[in-house]
Nucleic acid binder design. Structure first.
Length: 862
DNA sequence: GCAAGGTC
């Protein structure tokens, strides 16, 4: 029997599509990558009986990157990223092993049906899948068509079955347009990001960002926030005047009226009108207009609207909201949360979904009423063809969902109920008054039927808004007339909800990526989230955007993306050639890039105003090995050392304290060592500022301190202070911390393990001799006579911290997962003899210190 | 270390 291999874009869709096509009769199993499942069933396919095998990917299989050597920021000129640097496709998520998984499952299959999402990205993934599985398919029918594409616009029985009956083929042009987009975003984004990061890195002391990123989505997103900031800054408040009139009739009826002229911007004009109004003593009702109005029930919920409400009403950021929503989805409480669609599928069982909510005390009354009196037809929304709108899938309680989970679920559920409820109806009453020759109005709303506002009380019409009934010709007493001086107010910072709307309107990002872009500009220190989830740009964000405006406004305008997308659409429609569009667009941006580089002084001028030059910041700490002058330590992140004489900046480990280390120098370059420590309870080690960025030996990497230095003789190096293999991790060495007394300790130079020993010892040293059984370095400990815990009257002892019985109680080796040879395999402490024996020095067992130092020297200095 | 787009 032949096999048809079918692939969807995500595990949940593979499941629902195979369930529909097999009419619920498929068998399922988990794939070896742990993320995807395989659903199998038998059925008919182009007139034959076949076995269907359906699985999925998890989004894109591949991602685009530069080939390895072009990812070295120090050696590659960013300008090369526009054309010279070759790109390659890499597996998007190596942990999922997607290519291997697809090949394993597709091996020997005869036909392929691609069920990826019906958008350009999905079309692109079709070809990623084909690329992976083509070599393993059964190729014995050379003349037969074997690759098919299913086109569906919703996940409903009819639509899926129709798609199966009318299979087409994957669209190469649409896929190519995505390839072009990927390459453009990569080349342009990385070139600008690397250039401006490197240009400003180390230039300003208080510039608190080590990565100054640029991107066709994130930069315009930042632009929106700064645009609002500029409006606020340039706002000049203007005084204006209004006339407020208070009228009454009898004891219980008093109204405050609005002036039909609203306001005037000239005090004297206002005064003149006030004088006119003041000549009257009464206000006459000229007309009473009553209109029945409706507040429409909401459209079915899509992702962007959910994000807006979550931000503005629940105070939850988009990234967090999506995390919570995904959890609700995987636990089965809500439907798939990433959708653009605001229209329920025709066969969606609204009543069944509603019935599940009938017993929830928070809304059971409204739900029961709707079920017994009949639900309302939902408004016609937009069907984007992706997924149904977001709805609750089963009943839930607050205790099972947790705080934010429940709040989001509650909103989604109330929104769902509202979409099948009736519109809110109210009567709008406008009473027009004349006072002397001036006209005033008073408007009010009276609720007729609450409709959906019953479940969305925050939308309801307040009782205070209603007006008393009165008729034309009635006369009210004029109690009070005042001229009030007011001021126009500046707008406030952009709310996250407003930003989401702007992004949606300009096509910046997608429902899935909007939260990512907003998160990016927060993490890069371009904006901060203020109260009410308003986004306030930082100095850095403001300066960057103003700089782009100054140099090339297109870099920050929201049109940058749509202009490129227009070009990409030409590829998708087959009207333009992939290579030509890519070449053309890259050429434009390459020129923009070179112009930007040439004009960077314009941005730098703005930087200078907001940030202080690095030479003016920081305090002198340690001496430079080149000029022997003091270098300045800049504490602000990223903390670093700067030598103003040599104009060099040296990076330091982050998240810890830096001190001068006894004015000791590195024997290799004469830089004064500094001591890094992670706090009093953590570990500390010295490092050479130069070696830290420029590893001195072949077996060292950037970012290593003296505790990882393989210098054969230096007193601070691993070679002299290393004791033995880490008790926890694979490759670490426990290294003696010479600064730790009197609470002496050794710490792993790779992981976070710290072992305390010999508390209150007078002196602790690492000997050059090794333990005979485990090859760890011996330690020489001196105690004061009065305090010595050593047996007899001894004050000094030399031994192995792991094996020596004298040290047993003086070393806090209480780690359960002891890896040390002496503590493995249930052996007693002293029975390990022989285990370490015979191991080659320098091998995995011999952790440090080859016994022949000359041999070691020869190895290092070849 | 960088983009934006899928999704887990």
């Amino acid at each position: 029997m032949k096999t048809v291999f079918m692939v969807a874009e995500k595990p949940s869709l593979a499941q629902s599509i195979s369930k529909i096509l097999s009419r619920g009769s498929c068998t399922s199993r988990k794939g070896f990558n742990g993320a995807c499942s395989i659903h199998e069933y038998s059925g008919g396919f182009s007139g034959q009986n076949v076995r269907f095998k359906m699985t999925s990917v998890c989004g894109h299989v591949m991602t685009l990157d530069f080939i390895g050597k072009y990812n070295n920021w120090d050696k590659v000129d960013p300008a090369e990223l526009f054309s010279k640097a070759p790109t390659e496709k890499k597996e998007a998520n190596p942990k999922l092993n997607m290519v291997k998984f697809l090949q394993a499952e597709a091996r020997g299959c005869d036909y392929v049906v691609l069920w990826l999402d019906c958008d350009k990205e999905g079309e692109n993934i079709c070809f990623e899948v084909l690329e992976a599985i083509m070599p393993v398919l059964n190729k014995s029918y050379a003349n037969e068509k074997t690759i098919f594409r299913a086109k569906f616009s919703s996940i409903t029985d009819t639509d899926i079955c129709n798609a199966m009956n009318r299979l087409g083929e994957p669209n190469r042009n649409e896929a190519l347009s995505v390839d072009a987009r990927q390459e453009l975003d990569l080349r342009i984004g990385c070139a600008f990001t690397r250039f401006q990061t490197k240009y400003f890195q180390g230039k300003y002391g208080n510039l608190d960002s080590s990565l100054i990123s640029f991107g066709p989505c994130q930069t315009p997103t930042l632009g929106f926030c700064v645009e609002r900031h500029d409006k606020i800054q340039s706002f000049k408040p203007e005084p204006y005047w209004i006339i407020q009139a208070k009228v009454s009739k009898g004891k219980d009826l008093a109204l405050t009226l609005d002036w039909d002229r609203v306001r005037v911007f000239d005090r004297e004009v206002g005064q003149m009108f006030l004088n006119i109004v003041k000549t009257a003593r009464e206000a006459k009702v000229e007309s009473v207009i009553k209109k029945e109005k409706a507040k429409q029930r909401p459209l079915a919920l899509n992702t962007v609207e959910m994000l807006r409400v979550a931000s503005s009403a629940l105070g939850m950021g988009p990234q967090h909201t999506m995390q919570v929503a995904e959890r609700l989805y995987t636990q089965g409480y809500i439907s798939y949360p990433r959708t653009e669609t605001t229209h329920y599928p025709e066969n969606f069982d609204l009543k069944a979904a509603l019935r599940q909510q009938a017993n929830n005390p928070f809304w059971s009354e409204s739900v029961k009423a709707l079920l017994s009196e009949g639900i309302n037809r939902p408004r016609k929304g937009n069907d984007a063809g992706d997924h149904p709108p977001i709805t609750p899938m089963r009943s839930a309680t607050e205790s099972e969902l947790g705080s934010d989970g429940w709040r989001l679920y509650e909103y989604i559920t109330r929104h769902f109920i509202a979409t099948v409820s009736y519109d809110c109806k109210y009567l709008q009453t406008s009473i027009a008054f004349s006072i002397s020759s001036e006209n005033f109005t008073c408007t009010g709303k009276t609720l007729l039927s609450a409709g959906f506002t019953e479940v969305m009380p925050w939308q309801s019409i307040a009782k205070e808004e209603s007006l008393p009934s009165c008729e034309r010709g009635e006369v009210f007493v004029l109690d009070e007339v005042k001229l009030l001086e007011k001021q126009t107010n500046p707008p406030d910072y952009l709310t996250e909800a407003e930003l989401i709307s702007l992004m949606e309107k300009h096509g910046i990002g997608t429902d899935a990526s909007i939260p990512v872009h907003i998160n990016n500009i927060c993490q890069r220190n371009y904006v901060t989230v203020e109260s009410g989830r308003r986004l306030k740009p930082t100095n850095l964000g403001i300066v960057l955007v103003h700089g782009y405006y100054k140099i090339d406004a297109e870099l920050v305008l929201p049109t940058i993306r749509s202009a490129v997308e227009k070009q990409l659409n030409l590829i998708a429609q087959g009207k333009a050639n992939f290579k030509q569009v890519l070449q053309f667009t890259l050429d434009i941006f390459k020129r923009k890039f070179h112009y930007f580089v040439d004009s960077i002084a314009g941005l730098d001028e703005l930087m200078e105003v907001s940030f202080s030059p690095i030479a003016a910041t920081g305090k002198p700490l340690s001496r430079c090995g080149k000029c022997h002058r003091f270098m300045k330590y800049i504490q602000a992140k990223p903390s670093r050392l700067h030598c103003s004489h040599c104009d060099e900046t040296y990076s330091l480990p982050q998240n810890g304290a830096i001190k001068l280390y006894k004015e000791l120098r590195c024997p290799l370059d004469e830089f004064e060592l500094v001591l890094w420590s992670s706090g009093s309870r953590g570990k500390s080690y010295p490092l050479c500022p130069y070696c830290y960025s420029n590893p001195p030996f072949r077996d060292m990497k950037k970012g290593m301190g003296c505790n990882e230095c393989t210098h054969p003789t230096c007193q601070h190096s691993l070679n002299n202070l290393g004791i033995g293999q880490c008790v926890e991790c694979e490759h670490g060495v426990m290294t003696f911390d010479t600064t730790s007394g009197p609470k002496w300790k050794m710490a792993c130079n790779k992981c976070n393990v710290v072992v305390h020993f010999f508390e209150n010892a007078h002196k602790v040293r690492v000997s050059s001799d090794c333990c005979e059984s485990c090859e760890a370095s011996l330690v020489i400990v001196d105690f004061n006579k009065a305090k010595s815990p050593l047996p007899g009257d001894e004050t000094q002892h030399t031994g192995c911290v792991f094996c020596d019985p004298v040290f047993q109680d003086l070393v806090e080796l209480k780690h359960a997962a002891m890896k040390h040879p002496m503590h493995r395999g249930g052996q007693g402490r002293r029975q390990g003899r022989g285990r370490g024996r015979g191991r080659r020095p320098g091998g995995r067992g011999g952790l440090k210190k080859p016994k022949d130092k000359m041999a070691a020297l020869a190895a290092y200095f070849v």
